[in-house]
């Protein structure tokens, strides 16, 4: 068999299988009993949503042990599956709560490059200023070109003060400076935006460690929230991201961005199971209103594709 014909057939098969699977689980079960094949296809749907092979097979196993009626309706099976996932996610759905006793409430955002940290900071700023709080933005991303300018645009949009330094300046000292300034001018919420860093880069993670250390010099309780921003299109690497960032910074929760695309962000289920790490909010669009609290049940429904039906 020539390699070319195989490749072209593979491609053809791909388009077929993916279009079939995008139709959702519902198609899998319509008018059929819950046999081994159906369970396998449900498992595959979960894998396609990035739950990862082990989490998916665990859920599938639970599903196969459950005795359904002989001619169970597909929707009922999906509801049951949704319930299983909700059970995993419910305990970790924790909104980001503003604490007025902290002056200021310091929120540090961290994450890999391109996950959406600056946009998330901008959205958070807008939400807080809308509630009449005095917000300050600290551009501790002193590496990426125009990171400061990007944050300044958000500062203008939300009428927040932006503290920045020139490119290449020490991020930790900027964070320090911003806290001092925030304390003196009565800022209620201080959002510190850091540079994107891959979690396997020792020197960059050491820099983050230093930022946290320096923040704690001023306020041992700070940062009051340390948010890891995670791109929903990320696959199983998210597990390594959480693991490494947790080692370096006191991560209090996740914000999952870009959930408005075709990516389902199912790796969250694996994360919830493994780390019990809270999920604060999800980003579902470019405007500030699109940063929404994380709802375990809604999220579970979208993972199994139930929301299309109901």
């Amino acid at each position: 068999m020539s390699s070319e014909s195989w490749l072209s057939r593979l491609r053809k098969g791909l388009s077929k299988s993916s279009s079939r699977l995008t139709e959702g689980v519902t198609a899998v079960l319509t008018g059929r009993r819950l046999d081994a094949e159906a369970i396998e296809e449900l498992e595959e749907t979960l894998i396609l949503a990035d739950l990862g092979p082990s989490m998916a097979s665990r859920l599938a196993r639970t599903l196969s042990q459950k005795r359904f009626e002989k001619n169970v309706e597909s929707r009922e099976v999906l509801r049951f599956l949704t319930g299983l996932i909700t059970e995993v996610l419910e305990p970790i759905a924790t909104p980001l709560i503003y604490r007025s006793d902290k002056k200021p409430h310091i929120i540090l955002t961290v994450g890999v490059n391109g996950s959406g940290k600056t946009t998330t900071v901008g959205k958070l700023a807008q939400q807080h200023t809308k509630k009449g709080r005095k917000v300050m933005l600290a551009a501790a991303d002193t590496f990426r070109a125009a990171a400061v300018e990007q944050l300044e645009v958000w500062g203008n949009r939300t009428c927040s003060t932006v503290v920045s330094a020139e490119t290449g300046a020490d991020a930790a000292s900027l964070a320090y400076k911003s806290i001092e300034q925030a304390k003196s001018d009565g800022t209620q919420v201080l959002l510190i935006d850091t540079a994107g860093r891959l979690h396997n880069k020792g020197n960059l993670m050491a820099e983050l460690e230093k930022i946290v250390r320096v923040i704690k010099k001023i306020d041992p309780e700070a940062p009051h929230d340390c948010v890891l921003v995670l791109d929903a299109t990320t696959g199983q690497n998210a597990i390594a991201q959480v693991e490494f960032f947790q080692k370096t910074a006191p991560i209090t929760g996740l914000i999952v961005t870009k959930l408005d695309g075709s990516a389902k962000g199912g790796v969250l289920v694996a994360l919830a199971d493994k780390f019990k790490i809270p999920v604060h909010a999800v980003g579902v669009g470019e405007t500030a209103e699109d940063l929404q609290p994380f709802e375990a049940h809604d999220f579970a429904e979208s993972l199994v594709g139930l929301e299309i039906e109901c």
Binding site: I47, V112, G114, T233, T234, S262, K264
Partner: peptide, 11 residues
């Protein structure tokens, strides 16, 4: 992004 998950195909 090399870290992309299952959605790589759709995109």
């Amino acid at each position: 992004d090399a870290m992309t998950g299952q959605d790589a195909v759709n995109t």
